[in-house]
Design a protein around this nucleic acid. Sequence first.
DNA 1: TTGTACGCGTTATCAC
DNA 2: GTGATAACGCGTACAA
Lengths: 374, 374
Amino acid sequence: MHIASHHRTAAKKCIIYQEGMDATWRRGSMGRPTIMDVAARAGVSQSTASLALRGSNRVRPATRERVLQAAEELHFTLSRSASSLASGRTMRIFMLVSPALNTWFNGAIMQGAYKALHRHGYDLIPYAVSNDAELSEFFATLRGGKNADGAIVSSFDLNDDFKRLLKTLDIPTIGLNTPTTEGFDASVCIDNIAAMGNAVRFLHSQGHRHLAFVEEPDFEPFSFSSSLRSRGFLDAARQLGYADDDLTVIRGEQTEGYHSPQDAISQIVARLLSAPKRPTGICVETDGFAVTLMQELRRQQLRIPEDCSVIGFDDDTVAAAVELTTIHQDPMTLGRRAAELVLKLIQHEAVESPHRIQETSLVLRNTTGPAPRQ
Amino acid sequence: MHIASHHRTAAKKCIIYQEGMDATWRRGSMGRPTIMDVAARAGVSQSTASLALRGSNRVRPATRERVLQAAEELHFTLSRSASSLASGRTMRIFMLVSPALNTWFNGAIMQGAYKALHRHGYDLIPYAVSNDAELSEFFATLRGGKNADGAIVSSFDLNDDFKRLLKTLDIPTIGLNTPTTEGFDASVCIDNIAAMGNAVRFLHSQGHRHLAFVEEPDFEPFSFSSSLRSRGFLDAARQLGYADDDLTVIRGEQTEGYHSPQDAISQIVARLLSAPKRPTGICVETDGFAVTLMQELRRQQLRIPEDCSVIGFDDDTVAAAVELTTIHQDPMTLGRRAAELVLKLIQHEAVESPHRIQETSLVLRNTTGPAPRQ
DNA sequence: TTGTACGCGTTATCAC
DNA sequence: GTGATAACGCGTACAA
């Protein structure tokens, strides 16, 4: 992958900053302008130019103006690489997500973090991994702290080896919806267990006596699926007095090995409808899978919410579109908070409570209703 | 924003690479290991270490192994900033999107580009803008070519000033779904006009004699809405012999100034239903707005597709969930192709046809059907 | 307030 | 194949 190329090639296109250039610009006609060119043009030293360009108050306003104008005329921009090397700060924050950038959740946390970071001059560098090898690569990139000032790690259930690696990283690391806060300097998470409790109690109040929880099938081997939601479901249900045979829990891994996703879904619906005590209130691990499940339920002639109620989790774009009752969470704020935490830690500011929980709420729409009679 | 901090602070956490360190490691006990430490530990010169770490074949395999092992033992990682400064390559590609990272389209192109770039060692740096000031800032960051090796600019209808700026950038710049290819070194776009033609001809074949095209209301002032789709709609319809009063076109800007989005939507539906020749086939600029529109249409007791057919554009997540007939496009591939093009241009490879068109296709689902009788 | 001098960690050239 | 040495562009003590 290393292609032979000329070292320090001159700009390929029209170099418009050469227009109107006077004799103080002495570097010849090729090459990009450096801060020294700016300094020369403004009639100051290189260090003064540096101070002025970064808005230091140690420089006289008039001087600063001259420098800024010279920079503008030369079309000069600071080199971040050179700045990083000299200052020790990279102005870069890595964000680790899985398995891809284009999921509703990952998009939202990126956007939230992006805005907070960008405002402070930091770049957000996304890093998507879908297996352990890529994860190792990520940690290798970060170690030594020379390539980033901080990292945000999203939704990962790191094994012990990686947790250990995490602690050897000498930059602040923030967990985002991680099942445990161990190894992170700070974290922002939602309370999955409490959220599920709300859903279960709502179904109970609507008269549903037989409930189910359906995990999203693990079609991708590396996909992270916390067991927190099913646990929350079970905890709350038992506390309300539901017996074990009132509850049906369908695990994600139980649906592995089928020929097609469609088979797995049919299988799930079959188990739901053939249960000794057929559930009328169904909680699904994610909105995305809730929609898929509902399509199959309707194909089997079940009416929603008349015959059975369905509650999703996330409140993503699709949930609103199909008017799904669901548990709302706000990943954009999650991302923003995570970014704010990294920034504070980078600046060695004190953070009162580094591990934070963010609220969720149950949003009632059209897929839930009272339990059917009989 | 510049916080006073100690220059070159030592690693804050346990520096585990200090374990097992012998006397050849001469930089004292603080600071991160540099390539010189690796070279010393492997018993080679610093330049040999550099070659070995980058997998040059100019170094003997045994030597390379020693260097790699030393690097591993010291937990050493190359500093990208230092590499960039020395080599002139930043290994970074900027991606300009609007207005945010977390849209279906932007997420997909990022993912597509990310994978292609990451494989070649490049970082993808997203840059989201929602007004001209931020756009200027973006160009300022890029100018001089010291901060990125290339840029991908998505879905922007740049004005002439920015097009001029684009040409002064001395790095390859790729347009992605830009209305014009002017100023870009290469581009990948879909053919909006042809795509709409397919939709219109399909509705025609289903017997629809009165058609409508609905643009998404411009709730955000800076939002980019190309007129290509409405043009494609009109072109195709006229070619099929539709008269002007057979066609209703609702522009995005016509819905500005309402108190709420809901008002704007009601207004649109009202115009649709009160048209002299009420349209039975409706094309909508985006899937997202098609779903909103359908909700309002149903609220007005229209059955879809019995009373009227609706076709969206994008085939996003929501479209599949609500089984919307739509025009499918594949932004992930768009992103990948754009990335492949930047990489080629960076390496000064010849690109046969720099401006490419990507196919779209009409996906028939449950929101379209034959025109109602009478 | 401004200037001098040095170092950041790496790549690339060119001898050996 | 390997090793000195000179950049790369900027930040920052320190001196003036």
